[in-house]
Amino acid sequence: MISISDLRFRYSEGGFALHVPELAVESGERVAIIGPSGSGKTTLLNLIAGICSPQSGRVVTNQVNLSGLADGARRDFRIRNIGLVFQEFELLEYLNVLDNILLPYRINASLDLTKKVRQRAVELAGMMGIGDKVSRNVRQLSQGEKQRVAVCRALLAEPPLLLADEPTGNLDPTNKDRVLDILVEYAESKGSTLVTVTHDHDLLSRFQRVIDFKQFYDLSSQVP
């Protein structure tokens, strides 16, 4: 699903640099990425998703070399193939729950918002335990509920790859387990790949593989 070779990346501002010689994630694999803050875990997710482009090296996601795609094509690829979950939920406060879940279908013409999609959004919300709150504004939800809305948004297009950046970082233990259960169950049922950045070592047992980013961090610090 993900294949990275000799990836080098540096932000135009600041001294941070990242070097990943080799990294591969199989299709359907559940991988946790751990490592110290500032080591580039989120940057790696951004590179896998095509949000950032490396200065050199290859990033192949779902058999597509993202480095060779233009920005518009990368966005189209992302919205159809990758579900992103963020630590801060990143919901739009002026939309209600259902509209937040449907957002990907409203901001890219490559996804078609049909009646079936709306129905799937309502079903997803029901499965997440927020089915009775679809018409509420997201500001009226608890933290756990907000993250479940964000997860619904990521899952709606049924992407083969889920990238979650500390998805449980702002949640209490109960919600933490619940959200992770949802992500894992979805990945298992659909055969999707799940890559999660986390600081919470208690959750690592839920993943098939753990990548310690420290190895890349050490390499990164050697990048000239």
Partner: peptide, 20 residues
């Protein structure tokens, strides 16, 4: 800015975000 970034990250097209 953050809302626009989120829409970009999840794959919103420049045209759609600009048009919005």
């Amino acid at each position: 800015r953050r809302e626009i970034d989120t829409m970009s990250k999840i794959g919103g097209s420049r045209l759609s975000i600009g048009a919005l």
